Amino acid sequence: MATNITWHSNLTHDERKSLSNQSGVTIWLTGLSASGKSTIACALEQYLLQHGKSAYRLDGDNIRFGLNKDLGFTEQDRNENIRRISEVSKLFADSTTIAITSFISPYKKDRDNARKLHTDDNLPFVEVYVDVPLEVAEQRDPKGLYKKAREGIIKNFTGISDPYEAPETPEIHLHTDKTTVEESAQIIIDYLKSKNYI
């Protein structure tokens, strides 16, 4: 635990919003592997950037190549993975960037902590439950992970050997077995517009 540190204040969040002419917000996509989180996040990021908004996507796999490459998939490591992403996405939102996170984030407590981190600083947090039946996710299985999990090759796999605690009251609930990527992204865009986030 670092002790010899000092927080250096500079611009307030409201001043940043005024200068950048944009609100910061974190859009937190959660759901099973192969639910469509990353694909929707990519479509959303492209839309926002094409419409002149500052946005950045934080993806579960990509983050583990750098920031979180020291973490595995035990419950403790998953907790730390989400804690770090919560802090990073909060910094993005404070900078008035739209942070789009796509992480399984299977534990309700971790997602609640991410939300609290934002709301304590009056930063918007939009939880998006990317919901798909397990059997559909297994049929998709683009990385072959469910097959390996069923064979016991991958341990601690969410939905098979580890739990997924579904959000109870997300701001947005997508059913990606019934909606296309474009339709799912549009639902998020419409919500952001309704809240004057974009």
Rank of each mutant, 00 (worst) to 15 (best):
residue 17 K to F: 00
residue 23 S to W: 07
residue 87 E to G: 12
residue 183 E to H: 09
residue 124 P to R: 02
residue 8 H to D: 03
residue 49 L to G: 03
residue 152 G to E: 02
residue 5 I to R: 15
residue 135 E to W: 03
residue 174 L to Q: 07
residue 88 V to H: 08
residue 1 M to D: 10
residue 135 E to V: 06
residue 58 L to Y: 04
residue 195 K to S: 06
residue 3 T to M: 10
residue 150 R to E: 13
residue 146 Y to W: 01
residue 26 T to S: 15
residue 83 R to K: 03
residue 37 K to R: 11
residue 44 L to Y: 12
residue 144 G to I: 11
residue 187 I to A: 12
residue 141 D to L: 05
residue 134 L to Y: 09
residue 110 D to A: 15
residue 145 L to P: 02
residue 82 I to A: 09
residue 118 H to L: 11
residue 7 W to G: 00
residue 30 T to C: 15
residue 187 I to D: 12
residue 37 K to C: 12
residue 170 P to Q: 00
residue 165 E to S: 06
residue 16 R to C: 01
residue 67 L to R: 02
residue 9 S to Y: 11
residue 107 Y to D: 10
residue 35 S to E: 12
residue 71 L to V: 13
residue 127 E to W: 04
residue 81 N to S: 10
residue 35 S to L: 13
residue 119 T to A: 00
residue 121 D to R: 00
residue 55 A to D: 04
residue 92 F to E: 03
residue 93 A to Q: 01
residue 163 P to M: 02
residue 84 R to M: 07
residue 115 R to V: 09
residue 115 R to F: 03
residue 13 H to I: 14
residue 74 T to N: 09
residue 97 T to G: 08
residue 31 G to S: 05
residue 72 G to L: 03
residue 63 I to R: 11
residue 129 Y to M: 06
residue 81 N to A: 01
residue 147 K to N: 12
residue 176 T to A: 08
residue 27 I to P: 08
residue 78 R to F: 07
residue 5 I to M: 15
residue 124 P to G: 00
residue 112 D to M: 14
residue 137 A to H: 02
residue 33 S to R: 06
residue 12 T to L: 11
residue 147 K to H: 13
residue 166 A to C: 13
residue 18 S to P: 00
residue 50 Q to H: 10
residue 123 L to C: 13
residue 174 L to A: 13
residue 157 F to K: 08
residue 28 W to P: 11
residue 67 L to N: 08
residue 87 E to V: 13
residue 112 D to G: 07
residue 21 N to M: 07
residue 110 D to I: 04
residue 80 E to W: 04
residue 54 S to V: 01
residue 79 N to P: 00
residue 105 S to I: 01
residue 152 G to M: 03
residue 192 L to G: 02
residue 77 D to W: 04
residue 6 T to E: 15
residue 78 R to N: 14
residue 171 E to I: 10
residue 42 C to A: 08
residue 162 D to E: 15
residue 139 Q to G: 11
residue 172 I to Y: 05
residue 24 G to E: 01
residue 40 I to H: 04
residue 80 E to V: 12
residue 8 H to L: 14
residue 186 Q to C: 00
residue 166 A to H: 11
